[in-house]
Write a protein that binds this DNA or RNA. Structure first.
Lengths: 161, 161
DNA sequence: CAAAATGGTTACAAAAGTATAACTATTTAT
DNA sequence: ATAAATAGTTATACTTTTGTAACCATTTTG
């Protein structure tokens, strides 16, 4: 049993290690050529898009991004009018970040743009394949999200997510 | 049908866009802290590990990596004794790159090291979930590999893969 | 209240990746 | 045979990301 589990896990990891560069090369290049944002700030938009409001530290924790980098990226997003700072009345040290309506619209648009090639290629697949791929990617995303716990790459202690 | 396809594709893309930072943050950090290589050179090892021999240009094409960067990364791998240069007798312009035995062993070892946390977390899942995840990751990897055609980010023309 | 911890910013250095142009050597095309 | 194209390297500048330390403001702890 142990042996079998380990083998399965090894194969999963091998798959993930091979998926990684495929996504990196495809998405990062599109982000660079088609938007005036960088992967890091798009990652921030991504988690803000499904979290409503997060503090600077929480952003850093969720993305394993050093705090100074979070500051820089959020500054950029604020300059673009895509997010806003909200001061926490209960703890005045905390600065919460929230997407603006413009941010939500822009983000949706950006996602469409950076995925045009991918979309074109996916269109070549049969409907059945697409349904399968949807199920697969959903499972991978869900399980990875669950598994990837707070790994505190941040300076300072990382809060639980 | 078209509508349905598009929706499916949108969801797939949404999943991929969300999987991307999860892998990036987890793997890249491990690569940095646990090896003396960088993600780029590990990507090169990855494709050499399953291609036996590739020219510099082919490496650049497969990874959408600019040629000067390929040169730099391969230099580093040669310094580590993990790959070797082979001159092509038929076309003396071409330099083929091949993994050494040491490279294969080191690469296997490195993959184990950078995935320890991932492995620990995967162990928490039930056997059934693991089997499902293996099937899912395999499908995602396979279809993405098929789909991600040569996208010639390289300077100069990119050969077909 | 004083000391320690936390949240965030600033400043700075360094690594990693990207982009471009110029260059050599070799091969292909006209 | 000359010109054009290809494979690869070198050099250089730039962007993105990471890491570290110092710092301020605020909150928590003793």
């Amino acid at each position: 049993m142990t042996t079998k589990s380990t083998t399965t896990i090894d194969k999963i990891i091998e798959n993930l290690i091979r998926i990684h560069p495929l996504l990196t090369k495809n998405l990062n290049r599109s982000i660079r050529t088609k938007t005036n944002l960088n992967p890091g700030s798009l990652f921030i938009l991504g988690i803000l898009n499904r979290n409503e409001m997060l503090s600077m530290s929480e952003i850093g924790c969720k993305l394993s991004m050093p705090k100074p980098h979070v500051t820089a990226q959020v500054d950029k997003l604020i300059a673009e009018g895509m997010v806003e700072r909200l001061f926490d009345p209960n703890d005045r040290r905390i600065i919460n970040i929230k997407m603006t309506e413009k941010g939500k619209n822009d983000f949706h648009q950006i996602k469409m743009e950076i995925s045009t090639e991918l979309r074109q290629n996916l269109k070549k697949l049969e409907e059945i394949k697409l349904e399968e791929l949807l199920a697969s990617t959903t499972q991978v995303r869900t399980l990875l999200s669950e598994i990837m716990t707070d790994n505190s790459a941040n300076t300072g202690t990382c809060n639980k997510i």
